[in-house]
Design a protein around this nucleic acid. Structure first.
Length: 364
DNA sequence: CAGCCGTGGGC
DNA sequence: TGCCCAAGGCT
């Protein structure tokens, strides 16, 4: 990833830019590297410093985050940037405690930024580290109950020397070798010390409590289309599902209830299926061609609004509604590819700076 | 502290 | 195709 500092620079005392480390760590919360890469590039192009981000309009940041998910992260990202700019003079705190006090920065992100950006000996525990440590010490207690014990054990491994490199090495080990399924124990640099492998249970660790089944909800969104291509959209409240994001007015599929945003000849043109973290959704998409003034939301059109500003569920509804013909067939809109379809995974092995044990000194 | 909160890729 | 999953934080 672009925030990484090469061995020569690191030897010269160069540390990664805390802003870029923080931004990438927030984006990587519960999100894959492949999905993050294009977003990280775009954000740092638009807003090279935390001050630039702090000065950005809410709608611009939410629109750029669209498609990445967990939208509270984007709201907290902006709140954090503004706090750093206004209360810390544009510099990130260089301690775990200082970082932890900022919005959207929890135990993991505080430790990661303190460790990677400031070389503090913080104990960095993400899902990768939990897995690596559970296997190394053959911890059979299921998560999340095992969390405290895994953190304690991870602390035993954290060195005073080069803690930032250690943290990244642990996470890289989990991402590339000590993987959730079919770990590559044969090429693991620490296989000799792995109690899980010795006991033949590494593949099954860490154990986790089974998750509840997802219910299926149903609902509808209304897509009002104007002859000039404008659509009726509304900004969702800053909490809950898709909070703070643009969307089409909908009914009670999210529990809020509601009616069509305006009176018109609504036609259901199809349905969209989407799965959220804790439920499946079957969403009917109704379309009407009208120029009426909406009771909810407002008419929006390019360039102020772009389809890529929508979260994925709404993007699906948008694409279906725009593709559906009507009394006033809209001009064909060029559907831009979603940003995260432009990125491709690349191997991490070439980026290793160091790993404990046999991979020490191996450079990319 | 358990529930809430997205998404796309792998199998 | 459908199910399962993965680099947290907030309340």
């Amino acid at each position: 990833m672009p925030w990484r500092v090469g061995p020569a620079d690191r030897a010269a005392g160069v540390r990664p830019d805390p802003y870029r480390v923080w931004l990438s760590e927030v984006m990587l919360q519960q999100t894959t590297v492949a999905a993050v890469r294009a977003y990280f590039r775009r954000f740092t192009e638009l807003w090279p410093t935390v001050g630039d981000l702090a000065a950005a309009p809410d709608a611009a940041v939410m629109g750029e985050w669209a498609g990445l998910g967990y939208y509270a992260r984007a709201r907290n990202l902006l709140a954090c940037a503004r706090a750093v700019a206004q209360r810390h003079g544009g510099r990130f705190p260089d301690t775990v405690e200082g970082l932890r006090a900022l919005p959207g920065i929890g135990p993991y992100t505080a430790a990661a930024v303190a460790s990677i950006a400031f070389d503090r000996p913080a104990v960095v525990v993400d899902g990768n580290v939990e897995r690596v440590v559970a296997r190394l010490f053959a911890v059979e207690t299921p998560l999340p109950a095992a969390k405290a014990e895994l953190t304690r054990l991870a602390g035993l491994l954290t060195p005073a020397d080069r803690p930032g490199d250690h943290a990244q090495a642990m996470m890289d080990l989990g991402a590339t070798i000590c993987t959730p399924r079919k770990p590559a124990c044969g090429i693991c640099p620490v296989m000799a010390f792995c109690e899980g492998r010795k006991q033949g249970i590494a593949d099954d660790l860490p154990r986790k409590v089974p998750k509840a089944a997802k219910p299926t909800r149903q609902g509808i969104v209304w897509v009002a289309r104007r002859p000039d291509g404008a659509l009726v959209l509304e900004r969702r409240v800053d909490k809950g599902l898709l909070g703070g994001m643009l969307g089409f007015p909908g009914d009670g599929w999210d529990g809020a209830g509601g009616e069509a945003p305006l009176s018109a000849d609504w036609r259901v043109v199809g349905e969209v299926r989407h799965t959220f973290t804790h439920f499946h959704l079957i969403l009917s998409v109704a379309v009407a061609d009208t120029e009426a003034v909406p009771l909810r939301g407002e008419w929006m059109a390019m360039p102020a609004f772009h389809a890529t500003d929508l979260p994925t569920l709404m993007r699906k509804a948008h694409d279906l509604a725009v593709a559906a013909g009507g009394a006033h067939p809209p001009r064909p809109l060029a559907l831009e590819p979603m940003a995260n379809q432009l990125s491709h995974p690349v191997g991490y092995l070439g980026q290793y700076e160091s790993l404990p044990g046999s991979m020490e000194g191996e450079e990319g």
